[in-house]
Amino acid sequence: MSDNQEVSTTGHQWDDDEGYPLQEYNNPLPKWWLYTFYATIVWSVIYWILYPAWPVGGDFTKGVLGWSMHKELREELDEANAKKKNVNEQLARMSLQEIAKKNDLLQYSISGGKAIFGDNCAPCHGQGGIGSKAGGFPNLTDDDWLYGGSLETIQETITQGRTGQMPAHLKATGGAFDEAQVNDLTQYVLSFSGRSQDAAANKRGDALFHGDAGCNNCHGDQGNGSLKGTAGGQALPPVGAPNLTDAIWLHGADLVSIRESIAKGRSGVMPAWGKGSKEVGRELDPLAIKQVTLYVHSLGGGR
């Protein structure tokens, strides 16, 4: 508002004895602002009528449009599911082997599986399934499997979960062996990868491995794990005991890590994701598990 225009005042004068009367301008609000303000008030009333608004006696006003956030969500989800319905039904009917043979369905499954994997599996197994030494979470991109790398076994692992139990061996941590015996076992385990430094300890460890400690009952007589190994010519139970003869180590390859594994034991838990599993907060439906299976299988190690 320009200076030369007459502006009304509030009408009150302060300090007029001094000859400098203090007055307060009564500047009206700009018209556009005022009418916008009134319009918002009118709009709020319209909004109360159209949309859910006021709590009244234990319930609330629903609004004449009948809109609700939760209804909108259900409709959106239904719409999305309807789009995927055909192909999903097809996938649900087909076996993993059949899907793997159809390239378009396989690619669809793998990209779906990748998204599910990224949210649910990657926190432990890493983006792209590279695993993590920190918690002994297996790498899924190599061909060193604990329970098997076929489509069916991977599906079973995801659905039912796995619990790997390597018992503690040192007396101080609940085992049955003393420090020296644990050191001997460590030397013997190192010998599988040609790294044993102490022939005498190695020999004592060998005896323990196949004798009192009974390591061969899970890791096999040759130490090549429950999947490939045998004990006395018998196949081993599917307990997920790692192959000790290769260069892939779940909890570290150095002497200190291996000794710790033997002394304190290790336990690796893969939660079950199948329907009805109490272990996890969120279950994956069989179709999602199929997709994750195909994705994991595609990472490089699948058999």
């Binding site: 002994g136 838990v269 969120r282």
Partner: peptide, 8 residues
């Protein structure tokens, strides 16, 4: 809750 293991 329950999404990842205690170990994780």
């Amino acid at each position: 809750g329950g999404k990842y293991s205690n170990q994780w």
